[in-house]
Design a protein around this nucleic acid. Structure first.
Lengths: 229, 229
DNA sequence: AGGGGCAGAATATGATCAAATTTTTCGGTG
DNA sequence: CACCGAAAAATTTGATCATATTCTGCCCCT
């Protein structure tokens, strides 16, 4: 029964113009995406109001939103927790992710600029560094940032939102996988993607992305199958 | 002090076990899906608390949830409204919908039972009736029900949730299209689907679904192009 | 072991404050 | 004298919180 315990040391009070419920949402989202909340971990509204030092209304709104996105799950009796991804769940995620991310990559390729390639390259370098130093948290962040930038370039809000939502679903489990096996064994196809981008080969980018997704996700599947067995 | 009675024009039914915010969500969802709210129409939190006769917290939660699903949109400074789908938006919806619904149909085909085919058949008959009688609302409902039952049979929660979300996006515009051109011109591929289901031809079902989606969506695209031009 | 009470957490409401939009008013100008 | 526009007041709406109420699970007592 491990609940979040953080003293009021984290007053969300960052920026004036952003609503509190938005700040709470962003905070929780990052915690889920980058592994501060493990699969199966329970959260309580009151716990969050206490630890974040805000009223319960904003917390409720943020939690509803995250539940709607599949990042949190309502476990029957008023209990809310981070969902535990089953193999079957992950297979569904893989299917959609391959389809959507490939399309996003394709669109991004068509709108690519030299500056954007440069920026992606920088993110990929940061990612490689995180892998080498075994910085799991940095790896998760950089990897997400790489994809997120590609989404932004693709300029397809609906596709991007759906892709982002999928990250929230497998994020916590990805963290677990990295924690168990380190970052070394998670190769990516970013280099191929960048090459294809520079060559203006949209289909090549899409293919590289599909392989990138497939590779990473299948690896997760493997780990999940161990745990479920 | 407060002797002004609330005048609930549409009181939410006290269906015992369901939380109020859930009831509000379902109510609004249906209103959006089946065309009681038009694209571009604005909603206010206070207006809803008054008309539904509930407090504002549940309304807020329901609205956040719907905004997160793309069914409502935050229009800059304090206005929340049903989004107006652009052609570009719809193209993105089409892409994902073809992919996801085809997969759902494929999975449903593999889990199909005679009873389920029967149920689908009934829904399709109701749909045909709605088309013949020009019952737009009934058409929208039956069409959705047909797909929703297929989702349920497919037993793939994550895919189903994504598909459902897409309905919320194009639902209001679909209503507008039907309102302008009647139900006659909206043919579907449900008969082909049912035939393929009876034949146990999963790929055939998937193909029929993809065509069904494509056909309906392209028709919407055509109407949107008129309106945007 | 089973039932009843107790603690706590979640739901829902109303109140309060702030921001924004709308309305009203007033002054200047054609 | 009518009209336009700007500024200020008023109303509306949204955000947040504190509080009451209900439901759940747990613990203790018989």
């Amino acid at each position: 029964m491990n609940m979040i315990k953080k003293q009021a040391s984290k007053p969300v009070q960052q920026d004036t113009k952003q609503p509190v419920h938005e700040q709470v949402y962003q905070t929780l989202r990052a915690m889920i995406l980058f592994g501060e909340l493990a699969p199966g971990q329970a959260v309580t509204i009151q716990g969050l109001t206490d630890s974040l030092g805000v009223g319960m209304t904003p917390v409720r709104e943020a939690i509803r939103r995250l539940m709607s996105e599949g990042a949190l799950m309502f476990q029957g009796n008023r209990r809310i927790s981070v969902p535990v991804l089953t193999q079957e769940d992950l297979r569904q995620v893989i299917f959609v992710r391959k389809s959507i991310e490939a399309e996003l990559a394709r669109r991004a390729a068509q709108k690519m600029t030299p500056a954007a390639v440069e920026a992606l390259d920088h993110l990929d370098i940061a990612l490689d560094l995180a892998i080498e130093t075994g910085d799991v948290s940095g790896y998760l962040r950089s990897n997400y940032d790489f994809h997120a930038l590609l989404y932004a370039i693709a300029d397809a809000p609906i596709l991007t939102e759906m892709a982002d939502r999928l990250w929230l679903r497998f994020g916590p489990s990805l963290r677990v996988v990295c924690g168990r096996f380190g970052t070394q064994n998670l190769p990516d196809r970013h280099k191929e993607m960048l090459d294809a981008l520079r060559a203006g080969d949209a289909e090549g980018v899409a293919r590289a992305m599909e392989q990138d997704v497939e590779q990473g996700m299948e690896q997760m599947l493997g780990v999940l199958s161990e745990n479920e067995a």
